[in-house]
Computed example of a mutant assay.
Amino acid sequence: MTYRTYVALGDSFTEGVGDHDLTLPNGVRGWADRVAEVLAARAEEVGSSFAYANLAIRGRKLGAVLDEQLEPALAARPDLVTLYAGGNDIMRPRVDVDALVARYDDAVGRLVGTGATVVLFTAFDPAGFPIFAAGRGRFAIYNELVREVAERHGTRLVDFWRMREYREPRMWDVDRLHMSSAGHQRMAIAVLDVLGVAHDLEPLALGEAVVRTPRELRAENLAWARTHAAPWIKRRLTGTSSGDTLSPRYPQPARFGTSSPE
Rank of each mutant, 00 (worst) to 15 (best):
R110L: 13
A230W: 15
E220I: 04
A51E: 13
V101C: 01
L80E: 07
A64S: 09
G47M: 02
V28C: 11
W224M: 02
V101N: 01
D105K: 00
P261H: 07
V17F: 09
E262M: 04
W161I: 02
L206F: 13
R29H: 14
F121Y: 13
I141K: 14
V101H: 02
A225K: 14
E37C: 10
V95I: 15
P203T: 00
L24F: 11
F121C: 01
A41Q: 14
R42I: 05
V210K: 07
E44R: 14
A134K: 13
D175M: 01
D105P: 03
R60K: 09
S181L: 03
Y84L: 14
R103F: 08
M1N: 12
A209M: 07
E45S: 10
S242C: 04
L192Y: 00
P248E: 09
L237D: 11
A230E: 13
V97C: 06
L120M: 01
T213H: 09
A43K: 03
V95G: 04
D67L: 00
G257T: 12
T122E: 06
A43W: 09
A75P: 07
A150T: 01
V211N: 06
T213I: 04
A51I: 00
A230K: 12
M171Q: 14
W172I: 02
F132G: 04
H199A: 00
A41C: 06
A205S: 11
G86I: 10
T5D: 08
A225S: 15
H20R: 12
V112F: 03
V158H: 00
Y52L: 06
G183H: 08
L222H: 14
R92E: 15
Y166R: 06
N26Q: 14
A133Q: 15
S49I: 00
E15W: 07
M171Y: 15
R136H: 10
A85L: 07
A40K: 08
E151G: 09
L74I: 11
P261E: 08
I189H: 00
T5K: 15
P248K: 09
G47N: 01
K234C: 12
G135T: 14
V197W: 11
P251D: 02
T114Y: 13
G63I: 00
R236I: 12
Y250G: 03
A123E: 15
P169H: 05
P203Y: 03
M163H: 13
Y166Q: 07
D173R: 09
M187V: 08
R218N: 07
A127S: 15
G115E: 14
L204Y: 00
A53F: 11
G30V: 06
A127C: 13
Q185W: 01
V46E: 14
G27Q: 03
A64C: 04
F50W: 05
V97R: 05
G109S: 06
